[in-house]
Design a binder for these strands. Structure first.
Lengths: 246, 246
DNA sequence: AAACGACCCAAACGCTTGTTTAAAACAGAT
DNA sequence: ATCTGTTTTAAACAAGCGTTTGGGTCGTTT
């Protein structure tokens, strides 16, 4: 059979078995593919340019990964495994809830911004987040949920006034949203914030302290929650949002 | 000449001149193209399916818009114009800074979530945000900056302790990040939050109150800012973020 | 030495894409 | 009715894509 795997249907079996840091043709393809998928997306990225960069024949991707989608699968999996290994989700050993929050936020920002200088890894993840493929659902369960529940638990310890579950979850999403935006909206930030200030204040350290500060203030002072229920809708902006006059 | 414009290089001239709500072939193409670009991106969307939906010949897009990119340009422009008309940036007439903040946040969320049920308009904007085309830069200047500076101004009025400019900008990005994530991360939220709670608590009204509450607590209480400078880095998470062992 | 299996390659295949072409259909004015 | 300019059309074009093919080249085994 013209394939490196006995089972022609499952190309992912041999992947986990092999070492990932080799100099195989397979490893070279895997290493080359990531940046292309991240920069151009699944469709625009061509197996010809990927194989060109890896110095292998175009037929090799069919040989080792079945097809282009199989290669994509492995790239996604590889990113997740590396991130989890480099920046594991903080355990509940932390005595201070505030420090735990800071630790989680720092982990999140590190995962988002870590990688080589081009940051193709998280760019690919953001792409998946917006336009999920079939691989994405299981990835959320494996990778995102642990960090999400850790956030919810942390806020449960932090918020002192009575609060319902969905409000804790919204706090968690506020954290995730702020962190994620610094990657997704980097193009916008690059335009809105001039160079000297951006270079100085938009690193992991500054951002994690900022986000932590915001969320601690919101969680610890009951003031934010009071506002939530006290504020009424501004009459000048009462446009219904689901009716779109065509 | 085989083109509806005298000036063959500028296909956008006739666009603004004509009314947008017609039943032309041109209008039908424009109306049909948006959802396809949003769902599939610029590359995956084919002019054949767009023209099929619009019941026009494939050559019409070349005739009216020059090429596929010209059509894309007009779709983007049309979204921005509609959004600005439906949800204008709140003026500075608001006496209460807190209410102004709520108003801005509500406007932002409305722009993001408004549209037809599929929400293709903001989906297309989010796509541009992640992978900007040439059109995007001017769009940021025209559409995003006004709302951004309004946010910065509002926080300048809200924060009582001494604070530097970049911190005000970070507050603004915290708002934008939270709001944008509810659209970008909708796929993730759909998995992490079960149906009954999601239907109930994730509408514009709930979310705008939540975000406003969080940011007011962070801005008004000095507690968040204190934490920003008091918190030290958690030693268990000191992995440098720009070195990636390969 | 011969046979074998793993790996790699150049070339071709089939298909879809955006775009162009040249003719036909249409509308309004003369 | 005829001319004129605009709009629409079917068909073809050239390019690029992912994938397949059939054979070739090694190293190892029998």
């Amino acid at each position: 059979m013209n394939s490196p795997n006995q089972n022609s249907a499952d190309f992912s079996a041999a992947v986990t078995a092999e070492s990932s840091g080799g100099d195989d043709a397979r490893s070279r393809i895997l290493a080359s593919a990531g940046p292309f998928f991240a920069r151009s997306g699944f469709d625009r990225a061509t197996v010809r340019e990927i194989c060109g960069e890896a110095n292998v024949n175009v037929a090799s991707v069919g040989y080792y990964f079945g097809d282009k989608m199989g290669l994509y699968r492995q790239v996604i999996r590889q990113i997740h495994e590396r991130k989890e290994l480099l920046f594991p989700t903080p355990g509940e050993s932390e005595t201070n809830a505030a420090e735990l929050l800071h630790s989680v936020i720092r982990t999140l920002l590190s995962r988002i911004f870590a990688g080589d200088s081009s940051g193709w890894e998280s760019q690919l993840m953001m792409r998946e987040m917006m336009q999920p493929t079939a691989i994405f659902a299981e990835l959320v369960q494996e990778s995102f949920r642990p960090l999400f529940v850790r956030l919810v638990e942390t806020f449960r310890r932090l918020v002192k006034v009575e609060v319902s579950e969905h409000e804790l979850e919204q706090f968690a999403f506020s954290v995730i949203g702020q962190c994620v935006y610094y990657r997704i909206g980097s193009g916008v930030i690059q335009i809105l914030v001039p160079e000297p200030s951006r270079q100085q204040h938009y690193d992991i350290d500054s951002l994690s302290r900022h986000v932590t500060g915001v969320m601690l203030a919101a969680a610890e002072s009951g003031r934010g929650l009071e506002y939530k229920h006290a504020l009424r809708v501004n009459p000048s902006n009462l446009t219904p949002f689901n009716t779109f006059p065509e």
